[in-house]
Amino acid sequence: MIRVEGLTKDYGSRRAINALTFEAQQGEVLGFLGPNGAGKTTTMRILTGYMPASSGRATVAGYDVMEESLEVRRRVGYLPETVPLYTDMTVFDYLKFMANLRHLPDAEARIDETLELVGMADRAGGYIGKLSKGMRQRVGLAQALLHRPEVLILDEPTIGLDPGQVVEVRNLIRDVGRERTVLLSTHILSEAQQICDRVLIINKGEIVAEDTPSNLQMGLEGATRLLVRINGDTAALLEKLGELEGVQTAKPGAEKGEIELNLATREEIRPEIARAVVSGGFDLLELRPIGMSLEDIFLQLTRDNSAGGKSKE
């Protein structure tokens, strides 16, 4: 539903995005993660037909974003980072204006339905200028959902919402994402973890990682590290565990009674480790893989993406 190949955008001599290539399928929520200025908004603006790319190709809902921009715009719902609202209009009038621009046949029924969906049914007659930031965000979301778009592109959709509203909006995006293609940008990693089927980490205009949140979390390092916690002193056990087949190194962990093991294999060797601990006369309290948090991965990848390498499936 979204296919991007070698997409590049230059602002004068500055390259905002460099040869981006990715895809998002129907029924998928794709998260776009990256620090400020990474190129997320630029990419979204190109995909929504707001601005042309310098080179490369992108199709949305089967239409080329540059050659068939109007067809793309008919099929995309877009919530920009700065929610574009006419503060002098009522919520209903604003949505009616957007419905007219989109030539929706049953505009009023659609507006009612959409307001219900975003939990704003009781505020239809209120002036947008008088609404709180969170409510304005929901009106913006209603505008993006109004025409039941095939593709939904949301730039920082939960920014400025209170915790309760954040949960509601995330649930809404997850529901919408079951049938449609959703591309959302965020720099809240836990948000990406909760609602995205796949995340794409972008830094300095380039994709530095692309995977499911859990795969990313398992990461290159995380899959091969284990934490062992025993009751007692770890010194005597360190050497024994270090000699086990498949274990590369064994070192004391951060807390008393903890040992961190770096494994040389991805095979399951936890039973052998457990047996070694127990046969050594120690009480085994805990044995679990240590995954890097998405935060760790994000920081590592965005700190130096030239040295960070790619972890594409």
Partner: peptide
């Protein structure tokens, strides 16, 4: 100034 240009330029409108 208000940012609504982005709304209009991404609506199906020439």
């Amino acid at each position: 100034r208000m940012g609504t240009m982005e709304l209009l330029l991404t609506a199906p409108l020439r």
